[in-house]
Amino acid sequence: MRRFTSLYTMGKWLIKPLILLGTLNVGFTLLKSDSVNAGNLYNNWNYASDPSYDSLAVGNSSIFNLGGTAVKVDNSYVWVAINGNLPINGLFTGPYYGGYQVSNQNIGYGDFFFDFGNSNFVNASNSSSLFAIKFAANNDSAAAALGIYANVRAKSVVGSNAGYWNPDSNRNTVKARTGLDPTTGEFAWNDPYYSYPSSSFFYPNVIASGNKIGDINLLNASELANAGFEGSNFGFSGSNTFGFKFDRNLVPDGNYVATLILECLNDMTGLRGSKMPPEVIVNPPIDSKPAPVPGMLIGMFVASGVLGKRAFKKKAAKAS
């Protein structure tokens, strides 16, 4: 909190002369380069980064590391960005990986889940109330085609992907090798939202059943960047970035948790967010007149104070 206060105090005085000089963009560049933590809202993108140490594969490889996920909602689409070391089609392993059999010789991404209004992922799955997106064509999902599905119940495929049973078994390995606890995006590894009934529980990570309700458009890194995604500024360190978008009307408004779990559960990430109703733009009456401005100089000083405060507040805003 001290750091934010000092930045705000400094920025409040920096932005005033910047506006007077016509160089406001410099002030925003300064804000944008400031370090951040998981769960950040910036330019309508909600970012949750994930650390690089908590994914340990055979030979301590980082191939299964997730860098993070981000979600943007605008008046037309829900946009999702995914960053990780795995390409979208996963890793070809051959019949075995680390001495464990891999049924389809590939370990990749699970499906992407949205949960609106539930307090626990497993409970939402058991009640078939999840929304899920199959975006990786060759994963072990029961969904037959790429797209978004409703009334989803999830299942676990860790047993056929040389995987950890659940977050606890993954944590035990990470803790033993690094001395650190893993995280699940903006969640702690043992957050109640991801709790489950027993240590022998196989954690669900792909669609088991559901109804397809719409299609998705796959997006590459350039297309996401054109839509305002800036993962590298928010700690996303994976070598592959891709994503998708779908019609915003396919999912309800309200608070959500977005979850992505690898098929092997070597890494997983979660993100809290809120999907608000579309903004309603009301045109002013035709005969209305703009409010009088009491002098250019006063206007610039007022603008500098208001915009400076909003800019710093916007950069520091957390996703609910």
Rank of each mutant, 00 (worst) to 15 (best):
P182Q: 09
T5F: 14
P95H: 09
S125Q: 07
G117V: 11
V78N: 01
S222T: 15
S6R: 14
A137H: 10
L146C: 07
T5V: 15
D267E: 12
L297F: 09
G299M: 08
A162L: 06
I133G: 01
K289Y: 07
L24I: 06
P167M: 12
F202K: 11
G108A: 10
E263N: 12
M300S: 05
A176N: 11
K314R: 13
I15N: 04
S127P: 03
Y8P: 00
G163T: 03
W189L: 02
L30P: 00
D74H: 09
V73L: 01
A208T: 02
L265E: 04
E263A: 11
L262E: 02
F135H: 13
S127H: 10
W45D: 03
G308D: 07
G308E: 07
V36S: 14
G243K: 01
T178C: 11
G98F: 11
K314G: 05
A227F: 01
N211Q: 15
K134T: 11
L224M: 11
K32G: 13
A142V: 00
N126Q: 15
V26K: 14
Y194R: 08
G305R: 05
L271A: 05
F244E: 02
I107V: 13
P290K: 14
V206K: 01
P17A: 12
F242L: 03
K16E: 06
P87C: 09
